[in-house]
Design a protein around this nucleic acid. Sequence first.
DNA 1: CTGGCGCATTGACCCAGATCAAGAATTGCG
DNA 2: CGCAATTCTTGATCTGGGTCAATGCGCCAG
Lengths: 246, 246
Amino acid sequence: MSDMTFDHKECGSCPIRHRAVCARCEADELEELDAIKYYRSYEAGQPIVWSGDRMDFVASVVTGVASLSQAMEDGRTQMVGLLLPSDFLGRPGRDAAPYDVVAVSNLTLCCFRRKPFEQMMLRTPHVSQRLLEMTLDELDAAREWMLILGRKTAREKIASLLAIIARREASLELTTAGDGMDFELPLTREAMADYLGLTLETVSRQISALKRDGVITLEGKRKVVIPDFDRLQIETGDDTDGGLMI
Amino acid sequence: MSDMTFDHKECGSCPIRHRAVCARCEADELEELDAIKYYRSYEAGQPIVWSGDRMDFVASVVTGVASLSQAMEDGRTQMVGLLLPSDFLGRPGRDAAPYDVVAVSNLTLCCFRRKPFEQMMLRTPHVSQRLLEMTLDELDAAREWMLILGRKTAREKIASLLAIIARREASLELTTAGDGMDFELPLTREAMADYLGLTLETVSRQISALKRDGVITLEGKRKVVIPDFDRLQIETGDDTDGGLMI
DNA sequence: CTGGCGCATTGACCCAGATCAAGAATTGCG
DNA sequence: CGCAATTCTTGATCTGGGTCAATGCGCCAG
């Protein structure tokens, strides 16, 4: 784990984490946030915190992917959160991390020291209001995910995950060039299995099946092409009217 | 659905929903909440709102149990939230309900009209801070639940649900008379199945198995006695160190 | 008391996905 | 470039929980 320093200009070029923390911040509040923030980067596979560890920062994902997961003693693990760029990590007002947090790919976090951040929250109501909005969105995502875990078939699970990632990808890049989306899968088969409550073999088989049926195309093992997003959407088993943006 | 009126005194006798909404309210804020609140009661099985319906109130559960659930077109349904007394229902800042909400047992809600409630949130920061705390707790519960749905066996699922209800029950009554807890199951076998991502037959079989193995005792079909909570805890598959309070 | 209705239990059978076991394809590194 | 370590794919087999179907148990109405 290495500390990185971004100068002020560079920070200006990654507005994501400020927008994430506070969509309505005034200049002087941004200044205040700048004073308590620092960047940190992790390599793929590196743990960030273990469940129960003291966590003295909150953070916003700048680049890369991180996962939150819960493990049982016998090794079964379930991913319970997937953090993509602009997502918020950490929990104001709580000392210990409730989950294992791992960098899934190379990752850069924009961290804010927790205590001063909490004090700022008390003073500036729209920061906590913004955080409330984000948390409610996360709760919606978690509930969508519960439907996936509890009631969908393996094929529907895979299709749902691909659709979620594709939508996220599209919303960040804003390059929804018609249909024909494509993206790099940020997860290994094993991570996908942990996300979906499956085994990695089943994930692999179902991806092969979707490929065989022409729902997706693979370039290499990680690059996914979705020729017809509506077709993928049907495979998810969800109502056709779109569902929640995650 | 019938409107009920509670007089001010009776309202004073059910402090739950005020505490739930705002642990730190001052007298005049409570006054203000009183002005926009009304009680509403529902019978077991009655729908409260359907997914997509406009929802012009937020509420706090006074008595009874309600469920949030998501349904797929083909009838598969997954419960994604279980609201017990003191829990909060609704979502400031969102017009349409994202889930079906149903009264599982006879239910009384303490409702607040949404618009004035939202305005109050903007003015009194600790209301939104309290709501943020509650939402973060709900998110923790949802994530605990994701582990249950994704990775636990049917027996562990049932044990987990019983432990969750027993803990909730105990925390409200504050009558943890040593071990030997007992409580009335507020859910039908079908509702338990929807909670756990199982079928009602499997729920029934696993309850019978836990009874046969002496982990629980049944009096009638709904009254559960837990002679040894630690034993039940072991059956959940969780770490022994307690886990999250839900 | 009796029939009907809504839950709950139990049994018999089956299948989607887990498990176990080889390999194949990539990736990385000396 | 070659060898090892990862990561992924595919096959064979097994099994937990789903499905279908019958039966039991209260409970209320007549």
